[in-house]
Design a protein around this nucleic acid. Structure first.
Lengths: 345, 345
DNA sequence: TTGAAAGCGCTAACAA
DNA sequence: TTGTTAGCGCTTTCAA
């Protein structure tokens, strides 16, 4: 690759010091009392040589890379890529760029990624953590490393986070199913089982049942391992649908489960919602076009990314020592479509 | 934020030079003949102080950031986020991390992003370019800046690229429609109109018509501006469907058009494929779950990202002076489903 | 109105 | 077997 032009090259060409050039380029020219003439000359040569500042060098000197790290389970997942986009935009507005990494919900991998991002001197971290062992999060906090959790939070640690009201979302959805006269509602959740939104959604489901005096049958709550959805979901669905359980409705706790699950239901020849009602969490585009259209709990995805960056920026500005950590809980919205069967009655 | 421990801290604590420490850490210890004892000691202190190398500093020194830049139209688009994921994985395998940016098909923005990435000293660039004016690409080439184009290529410039055989894909799809007895086929393309895959797809469509002696009616080819799909697609569809044109089939040239278009068709009360057959380019997950399921041209998306990184790595290793630029054209696959109507007859 | 020098944290050539 | 020195490109303090 061609040698790039540096501050020094410009300085030499003009017979001035690089200090001067640096000042001019950073618009400290006037304030430092550098003559208009000299400033003009500098800009001209900058133009001529097509000078581009080396942000790595500047970052090293300034101790700030103007980069933030984003860790999600999988960037190719629509939910996370939408977040990634809004993070990108908000960050860029504030002069930051972002480096993303996918953890695949794998704890060790996530820890490695966090460290990689730290070594790369990112100024802050936005993470949808899969960590069960929260030592790493605690360490970040102790080190006053600026970070914001999204989607998931750690109940026992005071951190910044931006999440949605998962409990309430699942509660409302379950309420709706019950109103539709479904009392035997199967729940498909994902593991690892500690991920906070899932825990909260299960909680919301249970609360609704209890409110209506419906016994919570643990057999109706089934767990599918992340990364093995396709292999295991059929078995689990059949357990729910056949005697003795025979559920009337199925609540998928995230979009991946719903997608895989509905395919299986179709293959089994079951009609939705006539034979079994179906609802999901995460309102993705697919749900409004699939057959039937899927009733689901919608999250304000863009808002999550936007808020997260906003908070992260504050935290960075305060050197990771923000006194009152910001804990944002955004509300969800019930999107009623065909799959729950409420339009039938 | 807490002060991080540096090489110097370790060196001081041990009373040795940082050179020595650096050598040990980079596993040049044996080769440089540093005693096992000393090496052990170094590692111990590294452990104690929880030392993390500063990759920014190393990058500055080595003139290589081990970072690659990825520019796409929109990271939240499923097509691009899937590419992003495979780029991430292949890059990481080779010791690189990636910084992504979305251009929104905007030329000026893309140029700015390229420059930003250069300033950030990325070692190479993977870009799905929207550039009509290819000066910037030419410049990259002249500078021997390592880069690989994906999805789109510049016909007049010899560069590395990884694309799919768009012409052939659209040709096969059109052939299929004709075999299904559809002779009046409307085409919905996207603008900016110079984007190579779109141009090639239109070409494939025309070739197929010609082969069958069907006159190419320009009125059947309609252009929708990127970013204004929702606002304009209804009008365009109506033009196609109503007299005098009255098409029997519609070929959407990308997934966004198809999604928006099908919604409109449903709203108009048209049955697919009975009233109008529908096919699309880009086989996204949605198409296998939508109603009806959508026949489409599938691209080997993961392969695109993987190949691109592979080639970029070679180019980087050769300092951007790779003699024979690699030009990969991957083949597409026709995925037949319900929307084209071929299962009806 | 300008410049010299120091230093961010790291590696590599060259000494010792 | 280990250390000295220089320098990547930049900003900033202090001096002129």
């Amino acid at each position: 690759m061609k040698k790039k032009t540096s501050l020094n090259d410009i300085a030499k060409k003009l017979g001035v010091s690089k200090t001067l050039v640096s000042m001019v380029l950073n618009n400290h020219g006037d304030e430092k009392g550098i003559s208009k003439v000299t400033q003009k000359k500098v800009w001209k040569v900058v133009e001529q040589l097509n000078y581009k500042p080396n942000l790595v060098a500047r970052g090293l000197r300034l101790g700030s890379s103007k980069t933030i790290g984003l860790i999600v389970a999988d960037i190719s997942n629509n939910f996370f890529s939408t977040i990634a986009r809004s993070v990108e935009d908000s960050a860029s507005k504030r002069g930051y760029n972002v480096m993303y990494m996918s953890s695949d919900e794998n704890e060790q991998k996530e820890i490695d990624l966090i460290n990689m991002l730290k070594e790369r001197q990112v100024d802050g971290l936005i993470l949808a953590t899969a960590l069960k062992n929260t030592d790493e999060i605690v360490r970040l906090k102790q080190e006053h490393f600026p970070f914001v959790l999204i989607d998931r939070y750690c109940p026992n640690i005071k951190t910044n986070f931006v999440i949605v009201d998962n409990r309430m979302g699942a509660f409302s959805m379950t309420e709706h199913l019950i109103k539709c006269k479904h009392h035997k509602i199967g729940l498909l959740r994902i593991s690892p089982s500690h991920i906070s939104p899932i825990v909260d959604r299960v909680r919301g489901y249970k609360n609704s049942l209890k409110k209506h005096g419906i016994r919570v049958d643990k057999r109706l709550i089934r767990e599918i391992p992340y990364g093995k959805i396709k292999q295991t979901i059929e078995t689990e669905l059949k357990k729910l649908l056949r005697p003795p359980l025979r559920v009337e409705a199925i609540f998928f706790l995230n979009n991946m489960l719903a997608i895989a699950g509905i395919e299986v239901l179709h293959k089994m020849g079951l009609r939705i919602p006539q034979d079994v009602a179906v609802v999901s969490f995460d309102d993705i585009e697919l749900f409004q076009y699939s057959y039937p259209t899927i009733t689901s709990v919608a999250q304000p995805i863009e808002e999550i990314g936007k808020k997260a960056v906003e908070i992260l920026k504050e935290e960075i500005d305060q050197g990771g020592r923000m006194k009152l950590k910001k804990q944002i809980i955004l509300s969800t919205e019930l999107v009623l479509r065909r799959s729950c069967g409420c339009f039938l009655t």
